[in-house]
Write a protein that binds this DNA or RNA. Structure first.
Lengths: 105, 105
DNA sequence: AGTACGATTCGATGGACGTCAAAGAATGAG
DNA sequence: CTCATTCTTTGACGTCCATCGAATCGTACT
């Protein structure tokens, strides 16, 4: 039974929070890898792709920051966490921001 | 005799530093006001436009952070500081970033 | 039930950041 | 030359943040 973890509405996005989230190299590495993936992806798989040298609690913390900034949507499916970029909401509120920061269209 | 204050080359721009600079509301207010101005502008005039409730040392600190991130170019002319956005360098390194963050084209 | 596994939370620690008051240059006026 | 004005630097203070180890929680598998 999939549960969507708490996240802000697109209307309540705060640019300061978003830029702070993207300002951290680890989080941006996660976002870049996630941004390239066209499909929702398992958090554990993504963190391997990003290849950060960070402990599990720290990675979990970064996922939370990204989600609470509105950059990602996380769905809990059993033990796994499936994460994706909220492209449409981000494009609606801050057009062109993600492409500019993460590269590519 | 105008002196250009120290600044990084466009090649050495660091996205982490740039996003950190833009993540602060006060600095972003300065940048937004500066971005709208098509001409180089006196720092003191700009800070009035932005209307931050900050002390002089703090404003000076923010100007320095923006400059050292590569976002602005500051030229000292006598007692004045003339500042402008490094549009071309920013567009060359991170196309679309400033428009996306500061709004408008 | 019990165990194993993945993710989160808690507590602590070290460092970075924003802020200001006071001291320190630099420049223009008298 | 001296003084006054304006910006910058320094030092200090409080706060926030990234990070990790250990403990906790929830789920799946036997």
């Amino acid at each position: 039974m999939p549960r969507t973890l708490p996240e802000p509405t697109a209307e309540s996005f705060d640019l300061t929070v978003i830029l702070n989230a993207l300002a951290d190299p680890g989080r941006r590495a996660l976002m870049t890898a996630l941004y390239r993936a066209t499909e929702p992806i398992d958090c554990a798989v993504l963190v391997e792709k990003a290849d950060l040298g960070l402990s599990n609690p720290t990675v979990s913390h970064h996922y939370r920051v990204l989600r609470e900034a509105g950059l990602t949507r996380t769905v809990a499916e059993g033990r796994k966490r499936i994460v994706r970029v909220r492209r449409d909401d981000m494009e609606a509120r801050f057009p062109g921001l993600l492409p500019a920061v993460l590269g590519g269209p």
